[in-house]
Nucleic acid binder design. Structure first.
Lengths: 167, 167
DNA sequence: TATTGTTATACTCTATAACTATA
DNA sequence: TATAGTTATAGAGTATAACAATA
């Protein structure tokens, strides 16, 4: 029995799939992190926060950012502080609730994000250049099933983070 | 134009695919990390290192581990030190090269890894329970293309990390 | 000189929990 | 009491670079 067959016998297909999924994500993520660091001296969580805001021009509250980024509130405060210090985002009062604030991109932040998004998009398009359009669609659909199932499991449990997705 | 359509128009399919891929991986990874912490008081990199060794009973050299885990050497030393302190792995001299050493699981480490692998496998099978066998195979195949393309790009560049995969 | 592995350092991200201000 | 956000802390993970020993 060769190695491939042994691996197949000893490990369910789901495990092989998971390892491959993890490898793919790590390979692409590493490229993105490197690009963000080298080209823009920034990090993935910072980029992620700005990307969330770019999709909500009216801004997002801290707890909403925390949910979408799937991290706890204290971390969002920290990353927001960095971006505020660089005048890329700003805290805005929320009418009717003096505890809360909305975070939104400044014009400077919007401009920088557009620059970053352009390069980011290129890195990602390159990363999937090995797939046909049909492959991309099929992969997107299959991962949609995985995501839906994972989110359903989570909601049975405790939390209910949203997704990073555009739509 | 609704949100979905606008997102589609403004962002290439590759970007939407990437965000979904990242979300899926993070959702599953979070479950695995939580399980490893709660059930075994350990971390994903520690589990990953032991998983690499489990597939190579004769042990692996540090630079080989570093390559497979896709992290730099200093980190492997640190994780190895932890596992050595708990007698889960051991450093073995390499005949013919007194600079190098092989790392391998101890019997205690093998036993613990088997316990962890059993639970880990269950978490992963659960995570993909929303997919049919056919879906799993299709997803595995599509991700194979992504991985091959990513690795090819990397080899054009500088490094050449291996994969986390079983076969 | 190059390679193997270690050490030292600094930084980012993270979760947790205590805290404040307001609801 | 509950909620929104902040602060403080501790820990894991990472890359980088300088270093020792050996090839």
């Amino acid at each position: 029995m060769d190695l491939e067959a042994r691996a197949h016998a000893e490990h369910p297909d789901a495990l092989r799939l998971w390892l491959r999924l993890l490898t793919c994500t790590q390979l692409i993520e590493k490229q993105v992190r490197t690009g963000l660091r080298e080209q823009f001296d920034t990090t993935l969580p910072r980029f992620d926060l700005m990307a969330q805001l770019e999709r909500s021009p009216e801004g997002l509250k801290m707890n909403e950012l925390s949910r979408r980024m799937m991290v706890t509130g204290g971390n969002v405060t920290g990353i927001t502080d960095q971006l505020v210090a660089e005048a890329l985002v700003e805290r805005v009062d929320v009418a009717g609730d003096r505890r809360a604030c909305r975070i939104r991109l400044t014009p400077k932040g919007k401009k920088l994000f557009n620059d970053m998004a352009r390069d980011h998009e290129r890195w990602i398009v390159d990363a999937f250049a090995g797939l046909s359009e049909r492959d991309v669609a099929a992969l997107h659909k299959l991962l949609g099933k995985v995501k839906a199932h994972s989110l359903a499991q989570l909601q049975q449990g405790q939390q209910q983070p949203d997704s990073l997705e555009i739509s």
